[in-house]
Amino acid sequence: MKSSSFYFWVDINRKGRKKLQCTFQLREQQHKESPLLRLDIIVQDHPNPPGYFPLANQVIPCPHLHIAHPDYGDSIAYPLDDNYAKMYLTEEELKEITVILRKFLERCNVGNINDYNYEYQAELF
């Protein structure tokens, strides 16, 4: 994906043989090692670090969204229905990887997402 002056990548990482994991990330070319957004769908609950921000020292259940912070990087997680996270997914939507991808692309402000074909490959999950 490309904006007017920056290049961005969206990663989908589905790994784990014994325990399935699934994560979506938005990264920028100049700072690839630091995701701007990370949506954890199937991972462990996330303990937020101590600090002076909402949800400090709280354990955030999965699924959750990490949003880059100048002081904390991507170490802060937010529940999907949090007003800051804005990733409203129903239980039914969380069962469909293609729906999750579309919602994540919307959250990343990707243009023309209706122009893409989304196909589910059942043998991967």
Rank of each mutant, 00 (worst) to 15 (best):
L55R: 06
Q25C: 08
D81L: 00
L39H: 02
D71S: 15
A77H: 02
A122E: 11
L101H: 03
Y116M: 07
E119W: 11
Y120R: 13
I113H: 04
T98C: 14
R102T: 02
K86W: 01
V10S: 14
L39W: 01
P50F: 09
D115Q: 12
E92T: 08
V43R: 11
N114L: 10
Q21T: 14
L39A: 02
Y88C: 04
F8C: 09
P50D: 13
I60S: 01
Q21K: 15
N13H: 10
F125Q: 06
K15C: 09
Y120G: 03
K95R: 14
T23F: 13
P54H: 10
A56R: 05
E119D: 14
I60F: 03
T98W: 09
M87R: 01
R102P: 00
I100F: 02
P49G: 08
D45P: 06
I42N: 13
Y7G: 12
S5H: 11
L26S: 06
L55E: 04
R107W: 03
S3P: 07
R102M: 03
L80H: 01
A77T: 03
P79E: 00
V10D: 13
Q21M: 11
P61A: 08
Y78L: 07
A68R: 10
S3W: 08
Y118E: 05
R107A: 03
Y120W: 10
F125K: 05
L124Y: 11
D74S: 15
E91P: 02
P35E: 02
L20A: 14
D81H: 01
E96F: 04
K32V: 12
L94I: 00
W9I: 12
Q58W: 07
L37D: 02
H46D: 07
R102Q: 06
N48H: 04
N114S: 12
F53Y: 09
Q44W: 14
D81W: 00
N83A: 00
A68I: 15
D74Q: 10
N112K: 14
A77C: 07
S5N: 13
P61G: 07
A85H: 00
N109F: 13
V110N: 08
L37H: 04
F6Q: 14
K32S: 11
Y72V: 05
S3C: 13
R14W: 06
Q29R: 06
S5M: 12
Y78E: 02
E119T: 14
L105Y: 02
V43C: 15
P61Y: 07
K2I: 14
P61S: 10
Q121S: 09
G51T: 09
T90P: 01
V59D: 05
G16C: 04
A56S: 15
T90M: 01
F104Q: 00
D81T: 01
D82G: 01
V10T: 15
K19W: 10
N57C: 13
D40L: 04
M87S: 01
D71K: 15
Y84M: 11
H66R: 10
